[in-house]
Design a protein around this nucleic acid. Structure first.
Length: 404
DNA sequence: CGAGATTCATGTGAAGTATACCTTTAGGCTTAA
DNA sequence: AAGCCTAAAGGTATACTTCACATGAATCTCGTA
């Protein structure tokens, strides 16, 4: 690098003059929802049909949407509700859409927090703790009555919420309708797990599952069209090299047709290409991006975990690096206990440790499976979810973050 | 040799505890009439 | 007397602990061939 490291004006100047691969970066971000969604016409029509009564001020059926990650559930729903909302405001029809992702830790993963979040969505604040849940219900209830009209509650990753906090919430929410005079609520549940419906209380299921819609995974060709469409608006026409889109789709199709993953991969590849001053995204960039993406995802996930969780992870990682054989709860816990003092934490009980491992498993940070070793008892068999070199990187990251 | 009993190491459910945070209440102080 | 501030009291959700029981296949036991 010829540039002086602290020659910032020059550096920014160069950046501005540089020929960017992107024309408009925002179109390829996963938060962006395009005007037109491909290969989802059938689902869009059904959902729109279910929700249409909103516009006549009638309560639409509750809706349950399921399909694997990256099959466009959230995008489709938001796309439809956005349009619905627009038309509603145009014609002065009272309609409010609340979208809440139940997976977000410490945001909406319990009954209380979900309600608090709903209240916040309606424009009011409520304390983060201290009040009885019933109070929040009545508060929310009053808000609804004031709202006067239909409220669509979109609960994303609803399976996570129910797993943690039970299905009573859903029951309570659906029951509110019979007591509301000037407002009505409709629930829209989104789940990654198709078996979720079987696990919940039949009463809840019958009311939540008034309509069910399945999102099948995309195949490689479908992902290609999606990528092309996005790339056309987000990047320069000649910004993408031969075969890149194809390979990108193939990656994603292998991962159960996850379109979000494909988009992210393409974006990261393009960013890498740009940073390397390349004029085109090549397959080499794509391969780099795949590695980087995985690392970034894990890093993000890890750094947002509470400290205790991080130490638990550190213990598991260290064991995983040292010995490639399978790790069991006992040894992990022993190591964890020795690790605690150095980061200034009081060790947690094994009971809690077990729960935390379960949560880490659900987050995909580790793979833990309960097995019976016969005479030698029952335990979890823990395997790392990442390659060895990545694990080593993450271990260092954890150590830094814990100040060890 | 095989069927059933035993055993181990930890999973897992229920109930209790600690902590952090909230509202309400009561007292004390200030202020203004 | 009314108004305002503060501290104590009383209440809640959540993370964690404690207690107690559940699990499930490798291993042991013992009767039988």
């Amino acid at each position: 690098m010829a540039t002086e490291t602290n020659d910032l004006p020059n550096l920014f100047e160069k950046y501005l003059n540089k020929n960017s691969i992107f024309t408009n970066r925002k179109f390829i971000q996963t938060t962006y929802i395009p005007e037109k969604l491909f290969h989802r016409d059938e689902q869009i029509n059904t959902i729109a049909g279910v929700l249409a009564p909103c516009l006549k001020q009638e309560k639409p059926s509750n809706l349950f949407v399921y399909g694997k990650t990256g099959t466009g559930k959230t995008a489709t729903l938001l796309h439809i509700t956005d349009n619905l909302q627009k038309i509603a405001t145009q014609r002065n029809i009272p309609l409010k859409v609340c979208y809440i992702n139940c997976k977000l830790k410490r945001v909406a993963d319990t009954e209380y927090r979900l309600l608090a979040q709903l209240v916040k969505d309606m424009g009011k604040e409520v304390p983060s703790t201290g009040l009885p849940t019933d109070d929040i219900y009545t508060f929310f209830f009053k808000l609804l009555e004031q709202q006067q009209g239909l409220v669509l509650l979109v609960l994303d990753e609803i399976d996570q919420l129910v797993k943690k906090a039970g299905d009573e919430i859903l029951y309570n929410l659906t029951r509110m309708n019979s007591e509301l005079k000037h407002a009505q609520i409709s629930l829209i549940g989104i789940s990654n797990d198709p078996r979720f419906a079987e696990q919940i209380d039949p009463r809840v299921k019958s009311s939540l599952g008034e309509e069910e819609i399945m999102f099948p995974p995309y195949n490689a060709l479908q992902i290609q069209t999606i990528l092309r469409e996005r790339a056309a608006v987000a990047m320069k026409p000649d910004g993408i090299g031969e075969g890149v889109i194809e390979k990108c789709s193939a990656y994603a199709a292998r991962e159960h047709g996850d379109a979000r993953r494909a988009l992210e991969l393409l974006r990261v590849a393009a960013e890498l290409a740009e940073r390397a001053n390349a004029s085109q995204v090549t397959i080499a960039h794509l391969d780099l991006a795949e590695k980087k993406q995985e690392k970034d995802k894990m890093t993000e996930l890890i750094t947002t975990q509470p400290k205790q969780y991080q130490v638990v992870l550190l213990a598991i990682f260290q064991l995983g690096i040292k010995e490639s054989e399978n790790i069991f709860t006992g040894e992990a816990y022993e190591l964890y206990k020795t690790l605690c003092p150095s980061s200034g934490l009081r060790p947690i009980t094994q009971r809690r440790f077990s729960d935390i491992m379960n949560e880490l498993d659900m987050l995909g940070l580790i793979n833990a499976k309960v097995i019976s070793k016969g005479r030698h008892g029952r335990t979890r068999e823990i395997a790392l979810a990442t390659t060895k070199s990545l694990t080593e990187n993450l271990e260092i990251l954890l150590k830094e973050s814990l100040g060890v």
